[in-house]
């Protein structure tokens, strides 16, 4: 088996076919169809914008705050959609796994692919908004794809790990739902990080802990590279080499999760 086997011709075809099917089925029977993939995050953004930018005035002092907020919500939505679909994927395709033999990771990849496609489209929307909002294009935009890859790797790692556990313990889905609500507030998506830093004597420490989270690091990096250099990144808050912790965390989670998934996947057909 080994690594070259993973993306052999046969498996690529199956992956493509599963992604195509998911994509076709997702918005079937809705009037606006695929438009919802763009509309949903935009509408959520509108709510957050009205509450936090207009009523609570969180964004004063941050240039291009609407785009700044949109970027955060789009990346966050990608993370929740990707992990949500990924964790459920093995159980959802249980019927298939019991009847036919194919590499199980394909199911997880196919489930997360839809989120990836949606993210690509939403990033285009962000770019358009940014240009309308008066953000000037810069070379640092080219760094954004690296951040996206990092976020996807992290989501995939979580999907592999929790998706494999979810086969036996269905509680995982509910636990993850709650956890993700808490995580939302632990990441500077709606509030600026400067607000945490200035909040008291432990403000700086809190900001450092917050920024060690890979999701926070990615969101702030993308904002920094895409919109405004005022977005505080991990490198600015965390001293020296500690800034590498989020990236190492992503690699660690992905590697361990993949190994765990591979070990467990042999019994999926029996347990699911």
């Amino acid at each position: 088996m080994g690594i070259p086997h993973i993306f052999c011709h046969k498996n690529r075809i199956l992956l493509g076919e599963l992604i195509k099917t998911d994509f076709k089925l997702r918005y079937q029977g809705s009037v606006l169809g695929y438009l919802w993939a763009i509309l949903r995050p935009l509408l959520m953004f509108a709510i957050l914008y009205i509450v936090f930018a207009k009523i609570l005035r969180f964004g004063d002092g941050i240039p291009h705050y609407p785009v700044y907020l949109l970027t955060g919500t789009v990346l966050w939505n990608f993370f929740t959609e990707c992990t949500g679909q990924g964790i459920q994927s093995i159980v959802m395709r249980g019927e298939l796994l019991r009847k036919i033999s194919f590499p199980k990771y394909i199911v997880v990849l196919a489930a997360t692919a839809t989120a990836l496609i949606n993210l690509a489209i939403n990033l285009c929307v962000i770019l358009i908004f940014a240009l309308i909002n008066g953000v000037s294009p810069s070379w640092s935009w080219l760094l954004v794809p690296f951040s996206v890859v990092e976020l996807y790797a992290f989501s995939l790692g979580i999907s592999f790990l929790l998706g494999a556990i979810n086969v036996k313990y269905r509680d995982i889905t509910s636990i993850w739902d709650v956890l993700i609500q808490a995580l939302f507030y632990a990441i500077p998506i709606i509030y600026p990080l400067s607000m945490v830093i200035e909040s008291g004597s432990y403000g700086m420490l809190a900001a450092q802990v917050i920024m060690l989270n890979p999701i926070a690091q990615v969101i702030q990096d993308v904002r920094h590279n895409l919109i405004t250099s005022q977005a505080v990144t991990t490198w600015e808050v965390v001293p020296g080499w500690y800034g590498l912790i989020p990236i190492l965390l992503v690699i660690l989670v992905l590697v361990l999760a993949t190994l765990f998934f591979r070990k467990r996947s042999k019994r999926f057909a029996e347990e699911v």
Binding site: H9, K10, I13, L14, G16, E17, L18, T21, K24, L25, Q28, L96, I100, F102
Partner: peptide
């Protein structure tokens, strides 16, 4: 899948069986 056409189902089924 009931929501797919006969043709699409044939190709999906084929991919699952390992056919290109």
């Amino acid at each position: 899948n009931p929501e797919l056409t006969g043709r699409e189902n044939v190709y999906l089924n084929g991919a699952l069986l390992g056919f290109s």
